[in-house]
Write a protein that binds this DNA or RNA. Structure first.
Lengths: 150, 150
DNA sequence: TCCGGCACCTCAAGCGCTTGAGGTCAAACC
DNA sequence: GGTTTGACCTCAAGCGCTTGAGGTGCCGGA
């Protein structure tokens, strides 16, 4: 029958956390505030079991969250989802906007990564007592930092 | 004289926020919990003024924070800073570790960006009633989602 | 059989900001 | 010369998790 619980594809909270990048407490928290709807439980143990549909939903939320979406934004998304194809244009716009935000974030992070690597190089030069490499490293870091200004 | 406050290079809290990516409240908060040491104030208005040395420190903290470093981690970093060249090896390791973490984070985010773009395409196909493009978009998204599994 | 050890559970408190309320001061405009 | 605008201030409360305390049930040895 439909809605049966015999498929072993359901995820434990640990697996769900690994896939989504949310921590286990966060998953419990999201459930508590109503973002995940009803999450099934294993009959005997009472442990959570994430079915494929719920897992997809959690993964979508994780991507939106990465793009900086707040909990209330996620609720709005879930409302759109419930409206199905009649909200297709809104869905498209929502994903497009979040994608742009995330792309911009990633650019900023790449700069910061360059900074961290530059600083690692700088201290490495100091450890090695290589004053030439140190000068070059300082130049590099300075060049990166100037890009923060914009 | 040394330590004079006449250079106009000092940043307002707004400018500091823009450069560092921290919000203004976060900058006030960090100051309050002792991460920034003493931040100078404009004599007449009482407004904060971030001098170049403080600004550098804030930018370093911002990069470390991007890599997921906690407040207590940042305190440890500031301790190392205070120890100067005698802690060079630790500094190198700290920056190297954070750089690797950030690099891994960025990789995960790129995947999520691909997901968001894929979903935007999918809903766009639905808006346009293009069932062929919709099928392709579903395939794309599915392919991306499979990569979450690892 | 009993003994970890581990994955999960709940509930409460804490942390790291964020938001809001309420106020000061300085330049800018009627 | 008032008044509006905008950047800043402080203090308190709220939000979104995170951490910790304390407990249950299962599973693989000794």
């Amino acid at each position: 029958m439909a809605g049966s619980t015999d498929r072993a594809a359901d995820l434990t909270i640990q697996e769900m956390a690994r896939r989504s990048g949310f921590t286990e407490p966060t998953l419990r928290y999201y459930e508590k505030i109503g973002l995940l709807g009803r999450v099934a439980r294993d009959e005997s143990s009472g442990h959570r079991r994430y079915d494929p549909a719920t897992a997809d939903r959690v993964e979508a939320l994780a991507c939106l969250r990465s793009a900086g979406m707040t909990v209330s934004g996620m609720r709005r998304y879930l409302d759109l989802l419930a409206r199905g194809d009649s909200a297709a244009a809104e869905q498209r716009d929502l994903f497009a906007v979040q994608a742009e935000k995330l792309a911009a974030d990633i650019e900023r992070l790449r700069l910061r990564l360059a900074y961290l690597r530059g600083k690692a190089d700088l201290w490495d030069a100091r450890v090695r007592g290589d004053t030439d490499a140190e000068k070059r490293a300082i130049d590099d870091v300075t060049r990166v930092m100037n890009q923060f200004t914009d």
